[in-house]
Amino acid sequence: MSMSLYHMQKFLFDINRDRDLQRQFKEDMRDVLNRYALSPEERGALESGDIGLIYVLGANGQLLMHFAALLGMSWVDYIAAMRAGVGRHGPVRAGVYAMTTRLDEKVADV
């Protein structure tokens, strides 16, 4: 795992379980992200809430699923965002959460 992917996932781990950090993130996103050694691509994806790109960069699905919920995304939108991310940026680059179905496949009707 690249060092910056580790840090992106560390951020997701921290924010998913820490209600204070969630509040700080809403107030000053940049200040919170400055504490993590992120690549520019990772930082941009987190700042814009680009779930599709965060997925393709290799974020663990359990971490990303909760982060998407934190951003207020519905299940349907979350699944669609990951699929769209693969369509835009290509296959998942790291980790064990690669997509194995087709881009036009709706596995559970979503």
Partner: peptide
């Protein structure tokens, strides 16, 4: 199962 991926439901 393939949870938390676009395959979710497979």
């Amino acid at each position: 199962h393939w949870p938390a991926t676009p395959d979710s439901g497979k």
